[in-house]
Amino acid sequence: MENAFAQPQNVVVLGGSSDIARAITKKLCAARAHTVVLAGRNQNLLDEAAREALDYGASRTDTVVFDAEDPANARDTVARAFAQVGAHVDLVIVAVGLLGDQTRDQSDVAAATRVMNVNFTWPVAALTEVRNRLVAQGSGRILVISSVGAVRVRASAYLYGGAKAGLDRLCQGLADSLIGTGVSLQLVRPGAVRTRMTHGLAEVPFTTGVNEVADTVIAGLEKGERIIWSPPVLKYVYAVLRHLPGPLWRKVMDR
């Protein structure tokens, strides 16, 4: 069970080998996390993340391999992860994502569909199953990794940003639908983060490391923030950016 400081004991991470998810998981393990089940595409990376969780204090870990390109497996993946926890699940982190290569993907129907499946359709299918299970439990928390890119979609990343925008908006409605069930959903909107996914790209303002994101998320969990911005200042930056006139927005964001 989660304690009064929103420190969970049993955690399921969908997209468990992503850098942000790993950074968050480490901090949860250093607090109270006891059982951590990591689901992802690559067994080796999952094993690495599982070892790390144990190093940081988890007592038990397990892994589930799945491919988010096929939303048909989402239900079964969630069911397997919950079964491996074998007890009340306190927190489900949804960190599945694929940046893709916009310039290539935007002219390739299959590639565009893939970006949508991984960033939107699979997570939504999984969230549906997670929702059912947590509501039956009568308590639990869902943490969905969105992106500041979801707030206003840029031309240079409209596939990824658009999929995240869909997920982000859908999750706000989903969060409202959970009121009175004991389950809550919180969104994380990180800005640019130094990860494997962004390696080699030019660094933009307000870029942070994954540890900073994780610290902000841990604080946001405790506060019960519906939307956790990382770094927090982006909340104000985007309050302005989202209302910039189009020409100016394109000039600032799509240099």
Partner: peptide, 17 residues
């Protein structure tokens, strides 16, 4: 119908029958 319960410290609510 489930009812929302907490202890005196008003942390970690539970929904229970």
């Amino acid at each position: 119908t489930r009812q929302r319960l907490t202890g005196w410290g008003r942390t970690t609510p539970a929904f229970a029958d």
